[in-house]
């Protein structure tokens, strides 16, 4: 597993965990009246910072070359997948409410939450695309 794959695995796990935590927080806010919003927000920020520090500590691969002609198209396609996922999210968020409840009102305070959701979505799609493209080690594997 090279550095890009390790980062992709970490990002995939973190984005799934973030999604799970996000849904949990939304549900808790709904059912617990005095939910500690500020504490949770700061906790999330510290957690995100910790993940960034953790990823930055991944060592570079052994050998003179760490990024080559095979990695370039993989990275490009992964970025494209991430961009496509965010684009799909924007389309979904723009048109889904009209389909579900055309006469309903959306509170404006919901809109800032689109940014972390988009980041999670991009992280997830990009990591998944990276891992799929690299594939498994194969029978000759890491010899």
């Amino acid at each position: 597993m090279n550095r890009q794959q390790k980062i992709a695995v970490t990002a995939l796990i973190v984005s799934l965990l973030g999604l799970f935590l996000g849904i949990t927080v939304i549900l808790m806010r709904r059912f617990i009246p005095d939910f500690p919003k500020t504490t949770v927000a700061f906790g999330s920020l510290i957690l995100a910072f910790g993940v960034i520090v953790f990823i930055s500590r991944f060592k570079k691969d052994k050998g003179a070359v760490t990024f080559d002609e095979r990695d370039k198209p993989i990275e490009k396609n992964a970025h494209l997948a991430g961009f496509g996922a965010v684009y799909l999210l924007v389309i979904l968020v723009s048109y889904l409410p009209i389909g579900i409840a055309p006469d309903a009102k959306i509170p404006t305070k919901w809109f800032p939450f689109l940014l972390p959701v988009a980041v999670l979505c991009q992280c997830f799609a990009q990591s998944l695309a990276t891992l799929i493209q690299y594939g498994r080690g194969g029978k000759d594997g890491e010899k």
Partner: peptide, 15 residues
């Protein structure tokens, strides 16, 4: 190292 790629690329080419 001789041809200027990563070991993973050599593994992928061989496979």
């Amino acid at each position: 190292d001789k041809v200027g790629v990563t070991r993973q690329t050599i593994i992928a080419i061989e496979a």
